[in-house]
């Protein structure tokens, strides 16, 4: 981290020394400073952006998409699944209202489901929900705390969709095939 902080310090020095000269009509210098600063930021972004590989607790095969037994759509494509969980699409392909259930953001199953099945990160999902809820363009998904509650909620709510680890599956819900 040492070289990164010294880089930052250097950028800061450049930046503040530029300010003191700002009295004159030194447009070119100002533009150059801004350019340098942004380039520095972008460089830092790429350096710090590389993340260490994290061991996967859940692989895609371990997680199942489940629905209320009354749902007639037995399969979904990936885009529709993503639209449903992003709360952008409000109905099943068969036209019935969808009720979306999710686990807490910090649940490993939720994180794996978002990444493996939806190809989005949990923080993106949360932001998408917040933006809908607080701009009047949509509703938030229903929250359940545990996978047992997920099965109970999905099996008792018409139009429900959710996800669980395979080991929690029982006959009260149906599994949805995702292509």
């Amino acid at each position: 981290m040492a070289w990164q902080s010294s880089l930052l310090a250097q950028m800061w020095k450049q930046y503040t020394s530029g300010l003191s000269e700002r009295g004159g009509p030194n447009l070119l210098r100002r533009a150059a400073l801004q350019g340098l600063f942004v380039a520095g930021l972008a460089y830092l972004a790429t350096c710090l952006g590389s993340t260490p590989a994290v061991a996967q607790v859940n692989s895609r095969q371990d997680i199942l998409v489940i629905a209320h037994p009354g749902v007639t759509s037995r399969r979904l494509d990936r885009d529709t699944l993503r639209a449903l969980f992003a709360m952008r699409q409000r109905t099943w392909p068969d036209g019935n209202a969808a009720q979306v259930f999710v686990l807490p953001n910090d649940s490993p199953t939720h994180a794996a489901f978002a990444k493996e099945w939806l190809s989005v990160y949990p923080h993106q999902l949360q932001l998408a929900w917040d933006r809908m809820v607080f701009s009047g363009t949509g509703q938030a998904p229903h929250r359940v705390r545990t996978q047992r509650q997920m099965v109970a909620a999905v099996s008792s709510t018409p139009g429900a969709i959710g996800y669980i680890n395979r080991e929690y599956l029982d006959e009260s819900v149906q599994v949805i095939n995702v292509e």
Partner: peptide, 18 residues
């Protein structure tokens, strides 16, 4: 400070206010 309510009276309708 904000407070909102939303309602889906039918599958195609959403009513929301904040």
């Amino acid at each position: 400070l904000g407070f909102n309510a939303s309602l889906r009276p039918t599958k195609n309708l959403l009513i929301a206010a904040q």
